[in-house]
Amino acid sequence: MTEPLILIEALSKRFQSGGGLFARPRAMMAVRDVSLSVGRGEVVGVVGESGCGKSTLARLVLRLIEPTAGTVRFDGTDLTGLPPAALRRMRRRMAMVFQDPYSSLDPRYTLTDVLSEPYRVQGEPLPTGRVAEMLGAVGLPEAMATSHPHQLSGGQRQRVGIARALALAPDFVVLDEPTASLDVSIQAQIIALLSDLRDRLGLTYLFISHDLGLVRYFCNRIVVMYLGAVVEVLPAATATPRHPYTQALIASGFVPDPAARRAIVPVAGEVPSPFNLPPGCAFAGRCPRATDQCRTTRPALSDEAHPVACFHPI
């Protein structure tokens, strides 16, 4: 088997907050011991609710923030040890599409400025006609090159964000909730565009989302996170969940079919504070299958074809 494009090993990120003259700082693990590989051409989804560490993981993978422990290998090179100049050269091959198309574009830039910035950063001349080509690739008219972001709709802005990410023809793109702030009609357009671009350009995606339905539609493999740790990896989008949390996520989604109406059984309890995690499984307090073992010992992610971190998988 060839080496995966991305190989993440035991990646952790610790954040500290507060602290002052009299207050002791509090620490939390935003990402805890995450290992993951992404093969060439694969679309891997990372799904979880707010505070599960999925966006921190996205930033760690591209080394936009420094990990506390662990390594990220990109095509065989360890990114975590790379000096700045070498990292910048490496960055041509990876890109990110951000969640909020309103704050991720500079309001003073024209679209030409936005799309030529990656070339400026890499110190390369902008090929003639490249801006028009990029706009065309994401389905925007060439005439928009002189527009400013405020003249665009949310969906159009996100297309610009995608065009910018693809400017230097990267191999790997991290998509951090690219459709979370868009209408469902526009979300579907953007997902279709991302899908076409992947087929056309042979891209590899890491797709971060809170929407399990969307992830199951779009991804080949799905990583489920809860409070900083991976609780399950679904080897295929259609795989039946084994972790009670994944099952609860699926049960919480509503199908647009009144005939499939059912009694809603919401997950009980509240998400524990990441600053004060229980000693055992982080989901134990809300889990219908939890036993004493779950409340005292943290389960590790199993080493199976369908890995799960649970003492009592379904």
């Binding site: 009609s185 997902i191 279709a192 539609y217």
Partner: peptide, 14 residues
């Protein structure tokens, strides 16, 4: 526009 289980890839067009 809502992705559903069993939906064929590429069928979600918006």
């Amino acid at each position: 526009c809502i992705p559903q289980e069993g939906m064929a890839k590429g069928s979600l067009r918006g």
